[in-house]
């Protein structure tokens, strides 16, 4: 499974990537903001997107809105800090399939990925 990982902090990307690797997802492409993600998503064709919210240039919400105009199928999991939870509804309305609150545990991330993919398979 191909996963696109969007986060502006390299540390956060590394942490998430190491978690993903441990979970057995080795095909991971990284993007550092929404713009970067849009072009990488087009080239890479991910099966799942993990998207940070607060990023320079283009934030996660704008990315989801833009991405959803052309792609309604690929599931997006929003990775957000707790304080943005009040806005998660906005992301849900924009078409986010699931969300994980930062900081998260590897188990939680794995669970969210499985949930999301299971729902996708059922749909």
């Amino acid at each position: 499974m191909k996963i696109l990982l969007i986060d502006d902090s390299k540390t956060m990307r590394n942490i998430q990537k190491s978690v993903l690797t441990q979970l057995g997802y080795s095909q991971v492409e990284e993007a550092c903001d929404g713009n970067d993600a849009l072009s990488k998503a087009a080239k890479f064709g991910p099966d799942l997107i993990l998207c940070d919210w607060n990023m320079p240039n283009m934030d996660g919400l704008t990315f989801v809105k833009t991405f959803r105009q052309t792609n309604k199928a690929t599931p997006v999991i929003m990775v957000t800090t707790e304080s943005e939870k009040a806005r998660v509804i906005e992301a849900i309305k924009a078409g986010v399939n699931n969300y994980v609150v930062k900081p998260f545990t590897p188990d939680l991330l794995a669970q969210r990925i499985q949930e999301t993919m299971a729902k996708r398979a059922a749909a």
Binding site: T11, I15, S18, T81, E82, S83, K102, P103, F104, T105, P106, D107
Partner: peptide
């Protein structure tokens, strides 16, 4: 700064 707990991630970082 506002502290956000890290839980199990701590050992990795």
């Amino acid at each position: 700064v506002v502290i956000k707990p890290l839980d199990e991630m701590v050992d990795r970082a």
